[in-house]
Every structure is written in C-alpha cells, then in structure tokens.
Design a protein around this nucleic acid. Structure first.
Lengths: 195, 195, 195, 195
DNA sequence: AATGAATGAGGGTTCATTCAT
DNA sequence: GATGAATGAACCCTCATTCAT
C-alpha cells in the first residue's frame, strides 16, 4: 500500500473511531455529522465521500465495532480457563466492548436495519456465532450444559445478559448481585441444592 | 365531573394514548409533537397547554404506561394459576403492555431521568416491586425459588427477560424457544435432570 | 355607581395596574397577555373584553400612566418652593412616575402610535404642557429663564432630561453628577462664572 | 485575500448591513432572522454559520454600527471648524449615523448586555470617549467650556442630545428650535445676556 | 481528493387571539 | 359577563446533505 492509500485508510479509520466513540456515548441520533467531522479532524464532506450517508456510516461503524469486539470474544473462548469462568467473563468482563455502549447504537441498528438486507444480522452470524458454537460444545462435553437445550436459547440468554451488563445504570446496580446472577444462569431460580 | 372537565380529561387521555403508541413504535426522539397532535386530533399548542414540554410529556406518558401495565401484572400475580405458570405469563404473555415497546421509550427515560429526581425509579418502586415481592414469597414457599438467591437478582432476571420479549425482533425469533428459555430460567443451563 | 359597575371598574383597574407595572419593567413586547391576566387575577379573555387587543391595551395603559404622573407634576408646579428647586425636582425626583419606566413602554408608544391619530400626543398636550407653561411663565418673571428662548425648546430640554433620568442604567451612573447637570441646564457649558 | 475569502467577507458584510438597516428601522425583537436572510440574499442558516445566534448577531451589528459612526465623529473632531460649530454638528448633523436608529436597537443592547461583560460599554469607551476627551480639552482651552464642570456631565449632555436628535419624531419637531437648543446647551436656560 | 460555504426541511416552543360553555 | 380550552402563525434554531472551488 503506497503512502497515498495509507493516508486515505488512516482517515477512514479516524472517522470510524470518532463516530464509534460518539455513537457509543450518545447514540446515533444525538450525534451530528459535524461533531464526528470535528473529532476526526476532517471536513463533513470527507465523511460523505467515504460513507455516502449517515445511515451507511452507522452500519460501517457497527461492523467496525463488531470486528473489534470479536477479537476479545475469541481470546476468551480459546483461552485455558474453565468453562464456567469463560461464561462469567463473557457476561461480566468489561474489557469486552471496553466502553459502555449506548443502547441506541445497538438497538437502532438491530431494529432499523435488521429487516431490510440483514447487513448486521449477517455480521453477527459470521463472527460471534461460530465462536459461541465452539464454546457451547465445550460446555456440553464437560457437563456444564444440558444437551437438551438448544444452542439458540443459550446464546440468547448469554447475549441478553451481556447486553444488559453494558448499560451503565444497570451495571452499577447489578454488580453486587454478580454471584446470584451467575447462579441463576447455571442452576436456575429453583437453585442448585434442590432435591 | 361536569362535561367540561370530562372533555378535558378525555383530551388529555387522547394525547397520552397517541403519544404512547407513537413513542412505543418509533421512540421519543423520532416522534414530532406535530405528529402526536395530529394523531390525537388536537393542535400542537393544546399539548403544550397540558404538558408544558416534550420532555415533561414523555415522563407523563411513561407514568401512564406503567399504570396500565401494572394492572395486568396485578391480575396475573393475584390469579389462581400455579406459580411457574405465573412467571411464564409475566415473561411471555403479550397482553402485558400489549403492544411492543420501543427501547428508546424505555431506556431514554431510564437513563435520562433516573438520575435527577428518580421520577421513574419511584414509579417503579411503588408499583411493580411490591407485587413482585409477593410473588417471590409465594414461589419460595412452594419450593420453586431458591431462598438463597436475593430477591433483587430474580427481579432483575425476570425484568430483563420480559423486557427482551417486548422487542419485536427478538420476540418472533425467540418464540419457538419458549420452552427452552423457561427451562433455563427455572433450572439453569446445567439443566433439570443433572445428578 | 352600583356594586356591579363598581366591581367591573375594579377589574378594569386591576388589569391596568398589572399591565402598567409589567410594561414598565419589561417593555411591551416582552410581556405576554397571559402574564397580565395572571397578575390581575382575571382570564385572558376578560382583558380582551375590556381592551379589544394588546395594541389598544397599551394605549389605555399609557393614558392611565400619564394621568397618574400628572398628579405628581401638578403638585410640584403648584407648590411653594423656589423655581430652580421645582425644576430640579421635576428632573431628578424619582417620586414622579415613581417606578422606573421601561424605555420601550415609552418609545414604542411614542413612535408606533404618535403618527396615526396622535392619541398619545393629545394626552400629552392636554395634561403636561399646560402645567409646564405655567411654570415657564413663573421662571421668566423671576429672571430664571431667558425670555428669548422659546417655551418649546425648554420644554423639550426638560422633558429630555427627565426622560433620561428614568432609565435605570443612566440614573445610577449620573446621580453623582446631579450638581453638574443642573448647572449646565441653568448656565450652559460655558458656565456661570464667565465674564 | 483570495476570491473565496473575499466573497465570504462580502456575504458577512451583506448580512451586517441588512441586519443594521432592519434593526434601525424596526428594533431587534420585531425583526425575524428570515427577514434579514431575505434582505441579504442568503439563507437563514448562513446567518447562523456566521453569527451563531440572533443575540450574538445583534452585538456584532452594534459593533459594526459604532465603527461606522466613529469615522464620522472623528472627521468632525479633527476638522478645522470652530469649537461651537463642532458641537452643533455632532448633535444636529444627520450624516452621523446617517439613518435613524431605532431606540430599541440602542437601548436593548445598552441594557441587555451592558451588565454582563460590558461588551458594548467597552466599545463605547474605546471609541467615542477618547475623541470626546480631546474635543473637551480644546473647548476648555478656548474658553467655551467651564473647567469646573466634569467631563462626564458634558459627555452625558451631548450624548443625550445627539441620541434624541436621532429619533425621527423628535428631529422633525425640534429642527426649528435648533438655535434655541444650542443656546441652552452653551448658556443654559438663564441665558447669555443675564447680568 | 478535500474542503469551506451554503441550504431546505423540519423541530420545539411561544403568543395573541378566538371558541364554546 | 367571565372563563377554560383551543389554535394558527410565527420564530429561533439544528442538521443531514449538496455546491463550488
């Protein structure tokens, strides 16, 4: 890659980083293109040259974000720690998606775009799910996961929990309950010690 | 109440209903006051006469919504069906908050206001929680709930599930997994039949 | 006047007083009819029943104000104090039009209406000027006023000074200069002690 | 300065001129941004791009106005005509601030802003006053000004007179009294020929 | 390729005034 | 006659997007 292209790629990344951090903090609607331009040290028009519209930009930013988050996810799944610990880390470990993500950034996309074209759904399918399938298999083999339960259901559960943990207001309130939450996930509300 | 007051109350309710349904479908930011006015068959200014600002309106709409939702909740909790059935109904029964709720309508308020004054927190505390505590007690006495788990954790769990179920895109996808989801809630991912 | 009419008159006066004090403090444009209604303890419509429009109201308020101010003016002119003292009191004495008057309340009317119908000009002509003429005559006879100067010019001068004194920001700044201002009025910038 | 910048400066000036003439005729509150935009042949938003808000615009317009007016003032003060003539020209010469100024444009600013930050006060201090001080000194040396009278008092007087002269309705009425007014300023109401 | 400049469309809000009881 | 309720019109301002250099 020559210096010209490299500089171009750099600019594109600057914009993605700027947009990502702003979207994560304030949501998509509340962030103006001009703010992103300012934070990325480019003109508004440059953003349009690269991303066509705010709509398209938000999709690209999301893709960029998932790409980054997946790396963390991969690291945990392929690590050597025991299965239950992996699950806990996925759910509670803040290093995944290190910053708090603004709901809107997630849900806006989830809803607004999921239907027409499945851009995001596809990204999810191709990145998170394969890793999760691997993890799930490991859990079943070690007896930590009931083989009668569908992978989808567990995936949904874990995703939901992780999603909730990323909410600032929830996180702080729920932190003291970490142990209980984990127990419910593993043993249900009926509890471990039943007979 | 004379005809005057009744009509006034009617109009106020019309506005609340119009705003509620629009907020639930599109979120708060995307809905213009003019749209609410149109849907409620009043002028924009009338809305301002009753609710002072969009901000205040959104709070009142939320209160109105919680009030309505609580009635359904109460009905289930005080009904004669078995405990597990109650839980399932609370989570999966769409008649509660019959329509889909737009995240933003929930989260915007949860976040935006929860801090300064706790208007919404208070509403929640005074309505949902007492009923839930009663339900929780019943579950413990019948052996459906592990007494070692804190009420907060379970409340959080059920709330989270119910919240997720109200998302259109989740609901349709998760519906076939109802049984699995319930099982995980009651017995965890380790499963019922473990030994 | 029966009780009915008296009550009616009372309401009218309440409105005038409320409007006057608000206009004097904030100017006409900045004061909303609703504020006047609130301060006068009547409904907005009542104001319209009595005064037809905000425009007309402002004229009536001005008339009401001049009427009140004239009484003070009369008192000074017909009092027993020496001529120079009278002039000083007229200009500097805050008891005339006791409160500060907002420019706009004066100028808006002066300009906006003066042309078409001379409503205010007429009021002025019929109230202030006759008293001033009397005062002016007294000054000339006592040698305090140059008979070669036209009454209009002096009237203009004094009016201008008094007008300026009523401006809050001017008043405070000019107060320490009272003596100088007086001297200039009586002896000019060339000064008393010239030869 | 390249064509780009020149055109930008031109547009900025167009807006200032449009705003100035409208403010001077109708006052600030009565003039809508859209009117200024129309008169300056730009879009409303362009105005916001340059001036941020109506509030800020009004300040900039005022500064622009004072700058223009000062040039005329300077010309008179540094000219070769006799002192009394200079004073008369300052007060009565319409070429200063050639157009009529709407009170509100002056007073609104004088009052609204003078307090917090003294933006306008500062402009005044730095432009008009130094020239006036020079003039004042000249008058004293030539025996036209009583050295016992403070500069502030005289400044106040002249400012007041000039201010009044700029009012359309006053100007036409007072024009025939020019000589008398001048005499009062120089010799007071007691008059020149007293003994 | 990159940017400063410009804008149309729309949003929330206020206010003088009218309607209907 | 008095009022609570209701409104059309207008205003300031923001923002995603395009134009022109």
């Amino acid at each position: 890659m020559d210096g010209f292209k490299r500089r171009k790629e750099q600019k594109k990344q600057d914009i993605l980083e700027a947009a990502l951090s702003l979207f994560m903090e304030y949501g998509i609607q509340k962030v103006a293109i001009s703010e992103i331009a300012h934070k990325a040290n480019v003109s508004q028009v440059t953003i349009y040259n690269y991303f066509e519209s705010k709509h398209k930009l938000s999709i690209d930013v999301f893709e960029y974000y998932v790409m980054k988050a997946t790396r963390d996810f991969e690291k945990i799944v392929t690590s050597d720690i025991p299965f239950p610990e992996k699950i806990k880390q996925i759910i509670f470990n803040k290093t995944i998606a290190s910053k708090q993500i603004h709901e809107e950034f997630y849900h806006f996309l989830m809803k607004e775009y999921a239907e027409q074209g499945n851009v995001i759904e596809k990204i999810y399918q191709e990145t998170a799910i394969p890793y999760f399938a691997k993890l799930f298999e490991e859990g079943k083999q070690q007896g930590h996961v009931d083989p009668n339960i569908s992978q989808e259901a567990i995936f949904f559960y874990i995703h939901m929990l992780k999603d909730y943990m990323q909410r600032e207001e929830v996180y702080t309130k729920i932190l003291p309950l970490t142990e209980d939450i984990s127990n419910i996930l593993f043993y249900g509300i009926v509890g471990k010690e039943r007979n």
